[in-house]
Amino acid sequence: METDRTWQAADGSHIDVRGLNPPEPMVAILTLLEKADTGDVVIVHHDREPIYLYPELAERGWRHEIIAGEPGEVRLRLVREPA
């Protein structure tokens, strides 16, 4: 399902949480991760490093890495770990 903040691309599901106040980005990202049609890779477009998200990702079995993004953007690649 696509919204104005989420879309699908060849490299996985994307979510743009730039401009949202905490804890809205965390809630939006975790909501996406819990959807059945979300694949095993999610790309997050953020305006800051979501340090408070990391423990929640670990609890849900997702790894994270920061990848190259636009200037002023923090882009993360989240990968679901094998069960």
Partner: peptide, 19 residues
Amino acid sequence: PFLASMHAAKAGGKAPLVS
């Protein structure tokens, strides 16, 4: 435990579970 996990994750890679 949340901060402990967060700081570990910040150091790179996988964070220990809060639980």
